[in-house]
Design a protein around this nucleic acid. Structure first.
Lengths: 219, 219, 219, 219
DNA sequence: TATGAATGAGAGTTCATTCAT
DNA sequence: TATGAATGAACTCTCATTCAT
């Protein structure tokens, strides 16, 4: 049985939900906006529908967010860092080495943790994915703040295992893309494509990780 | 050296571009619409901008397409079948067996072929991916006409190799998802995420296929 | 039994249908236009719907009628004179005196004749009534060519009977309005309001005429 | 001299103008719409012209009325009930018996009252008449709510007088149509056809009522 | 003569945003 | 702080009319 707790722990320490300081109305606005954005897409959502769903006057939205786009960014931008936060943590590698007997166990713990996180924030993540191509601000944020750090972190780890002779000698970027897209593919197919199909989450994660590990194993 | 020709052949035989019977202006409209939809997203594109870019009166758009949505569907819906057409062909398996010495060669041929296709129709595919979540008609088309047939075809093939003992004994859906998302991940990262990075396509495809094959290989 | 023939006769002599010289397509256009105008009203009808219903290209309509309004006028304007033609005839009074034993018989003959005419051209008459308030050209035509002559003719007749002591001594315009609106009211209620109710036309006309005659009878 | 007051009284008690709760701009919109609809007809009126005439942004119209048609209905639908309200009142017959020495006096009082009402709301009534043929909702309202009740009320009264031997023994529907169309004819010719002619209203009403009474009198 | 693709002005309607209350 | 009436620019779409074929 893999130990889930350590992973959860260091994540919770870092991620502050920052939902504090919001008035009750503001919270209602954000909730309504998430609902509507996720259903219709940002561009096809109207502030009036959001206001109505939030039980708030149209003007109230603009007291809190100068523009509709600012509302979108306020919702979606924190999600990016939260989603990738654990991979950026300084003690990521340390946790890996001290708390988990095998790499597979560690990956399983991380996967379960992120899966639960994604489940909780599914709608916001969907909005995020939808809007990244059209919101330069989000792209910039990803590139500058998060993307590269995650990339570096993973590269580091992969090279560590390559050095140890546990991972096949292919170019690290190829390995990285292979492993991450196979993992992300699992998330996407489950949460976005096959939303209603029943599944045994533990099994599916295990299988995917095994296939990835197998694929990358030094022969 | 893999043989590309046979794959290309049966695809071209099947896919008819059906761009016939279009007036010159209609063609301009479609081209302009693809451009604008891809850049701004369907909902944020205005018919007036499309008309302007096409060098056509706005009314002309609506002579040919009753609504803006109909224009979208007309552009995007044929792409779905064209994109997945080869996987649906009846002689898919036959080609695999007769024309390629190894499975890897076959996969490489298919991958190159689809990659070239995707490169040519990148913008439309991007629009398609963006709009599937919001266009029930596209979802229905995918589910009813194409998705399930592709799924069955792949399942068939994977089980064939499983029976031969060449593929690890994990549940077929897991294998299917793993292999296809790893492959699609290659496409997506190259075409949509890392658009401008230089790369050695042949190499990348080879690596990805090797990692997939390795992952699924019976131990 | 009232004699219908003489009334019919002098009317037919006068009214020329002028549907000659129309090409087949033109006839189809007119028929379709009548249908559409009557159903949706002139302003809400589109030339494209008319063209479609007529099985004709849109441009063809404008070969025959310079504008949509010209089409309307071409349909509706002749109807006005045809509808009121008998009352304008020079030998109207003569027919009355020579061919009918009583005034009531004469009125009955005219009423039946006009009722049959109205039944045949119901839709055009409906269009005419609808458009008179908005088409100055129709108003002008009515005032200048037809209305006043009908008015004079009826005034003449009523004063003739007043002089003979058969009609009550009230102002002729009041008598005229009373008798004509009671008669027109019969038409309108039957054809426009109670379109589908069954009725005994002969009876209804007889009753109405009796009530009018009774109302105007010298005491 | 006929007593006008009682008739006026029970009507005013019933009809509530319900123009309350309207913002100043909304009132301006309604006024402008009545003006434009009456002049050009509903279908030929543009919301932009209405907005301009009302001194209001075009969008403001659609804040208050979701569609142009809703604006029409809001204007025209209450008029129908108000116009026919007195004839539907429960104490209609009572007033007739207690407050007026003769039937003629009563009819005169009602006629004057409705004439004044019509004069005040002439334009709306014109719009109502124009649009009934094209607005199923108005037709339905008329049939279900008002028309049949007025019809029954009048039938009742006419049969009452027939039983008393004061009215000729013809079918009640014929009597009803005769009397009402003669009366309505007076209104229509005065207000809609001969708009600008001078007239002695009291006289004209008296004559018309006398002719109707005369026509229906038992011999 | 007949066609129908093309037009462009203008239609009804939406909507993010402002502002007096 | 919260409201919601008001805005006006921009939207999708319609339509009478033109004109090359």
């Amino acid at each position: 049985m893999p130990q889930q707790e350590p992973v959860d722990q260091w994540i919770k320490e870092i991620i502050k939900m920052s939902d504090e300081k919001m008035t009750e109305k503001q919270l209602k606005i954000v909730h309504a906006a998430v609902e509507v954005f996720a259903e219709k897409g940002y561009a096809s959502s109207s502030t009036s529908e959001i206001a109505q769903k939030a039980g708030v006057a149209e003007g109230t939205i603009f007291r809190h967010y100068k523009t509709k786009k600012e509302l979108l960014i306020a919702i979606v931008s924190p999600m990016m860092s939260k989603l990738l936060a654990p991979f950026v943590l300084n003690d990521f590698k340390e946790v890996l080495e001290t708390d988990y007997p095998t790499l597979e166990d560690f990956l399983y713990a991380v996967a379960v943790n992120r899966m639960n996180f994604a489940r909780k924030h599914l709608k916001i993540i969907k909005i995020l994915l939808q809007e990244i191509p059209f919101q330069p601000m989000l792209q910039k944020e990803f590139k500058e703040h998060i993307g590269s750090r995650v990339f570096n972190r993973f590269t580091e780890i992969l090279e560590h295992f390559k050095a140890k002779g546990e991972v096949v000698d292919l170019p690290t970027p190829a390995l990285l893309r292979f492993s991450s897209t196979a993992m992300i593919g699992l998330f996407v197919t489950h949460f976005l494509v096959l939303r209603d199909s029943p599944w045994d989450e533990e099994q599916e994660i295990r299988h995917t990780i095994r296939l990835i590990m197998n694929g990358m194993a030094a022969k």
